[in-house]
């Protein structure tokens, strides 16, 4: 495409530029519209109908205040944050160890382990929820944020391992060898050489784990019976059930739980993309 535009006569070039501009506008409209509409509905004083909410004539924060005071969203946010951070720490640590093992060592069953990690990702959560529920019941982990986080660690592990593997493998072996030559033990090499070098990859996987935990719905719905322990996703469903026609409030609540994820996403966009690509595609 670029090649064509270079050689095209100027009339055609403007046409191409115009087409491109229109395409970009269409893409932006499609991608941003739901988020915009969510925000504008949340901000409009009267969100009785779609058109009222489209351009809030009289913006207000009342809906947000209402969500925090009536909806119990402070509790839900706290719970989700707790579970998500626990998940991030747990899965990053375990995934890093595992990724080093599969990227830095050749051992029997290595390929088997890798394939298993890959295959386990496809198992639908809907299939696991029944027996995870029974397991959690037996272990007394229902209604426990720790229990939920533990399951999330396991859920986010396969992808995290798969993604981190690429980052670890990308660290040249010579760097490690240099550390050994300096007399470092393996453990020391791991923490002071390898760890800092794969830190960007860890950030990317952490975000992934965070988002997995923050957005997860079906397990949180099943595990958490006590309203005090709801995570944001389940809390939003509860809130929607109580305010089916109050779209302003529902959208305000939605905005509140979307913002942290969005902030994270935009913050680490670059690392995320490169991590994804190296993890999921290059293998």
């Amino acid at each position: 495409m670029t090649a064509t535009t270079d050689r095209a006569p100027s009339g055609r070039r403007t046409a191409v530029a115009f087409g491109k501009g229109a395409a970009v506008a269409a893409v932006l409209l499609f991608t941003l519209f739901p988020a915009y509409f969510m925000l504008s509905s949340a901000l409009s004083r009267r969100s009785g109908s779609g058109t009222d909410a489209l351009f809030p004539a009289d913006p207000t924060l009342d809906h947000f205040v209402g969500v925090f005071t009536r909806g119990g969203f402070l509790t839900y946010l706290g719970n989700s944050l707790f579970v998500a951070l626990l998940t991030v720490v747990g899965s990053s640590l375990l995934a890093l160890f595992a990724a080093v093992a599969v990227a830095r060592f050749r051992f029997r069953l290595r390929t088997t382990v890798l394939v298993m990690v890959l295959v386990i990702q496809m198992v639908p959560l809907e299939a696991l929820v029944i027996s995870l529920f029974l397991l959690a019941r037996d272990l007394n982990m229902l209604n426990s944020l720790w229990g939920l986080a533990l399951v999330y660690v396991a859920l986010s592990l396969p992808f995290a391992i798969w993604m981190l593997r690429g980052f670890v493998a990308a660290v040249p072996a010579e760097v490690e060898e240099a550390a050994y030559i300096d007399g470092a033990s393996w453990g020391r090499m791991f923490w002071s050489v390898l760890f800092p070098l794969v830190a960007p990859g860890l950030v990317a996987t952490s975000i992934f784990s965070f988002i997995t935990a923050w957005n997860e719905f079906i397990l949180a719905l099943t595990f958490m019976n006590d309203g005090e322990k709801y995570t944001v996703a389940v809390g939003l469903r509860q809130f929607f059930g109580q305010n089916t026609t109050d779209w302003g409030a529902v959208m305000a609540a939605s905005t509140i739980i979307t913002l942290p994820v969005m902030a994270f996403f935009l913050f680490v966009q670059r690392g995320l993309v490169s991590g994804l690509v190296s993890g999921a595609v290059k293998g």
Partner: peptide, 26 residues
């Protein structure tokens, strides 16, 4: 710029985006 905007669609949690679509199609 465009990639950043696209991320917004990706970042929307499934639960919230579902409610937004329900609202759009109310």
């Amino acid at each position: 710029v465009v990639t950043g905007c696209i991320m917004v669609a990706w970042a929307m949690p499934a639960v919230t985006s579902t409610y937004v679509w329900i609202w759009i199609f109310d």
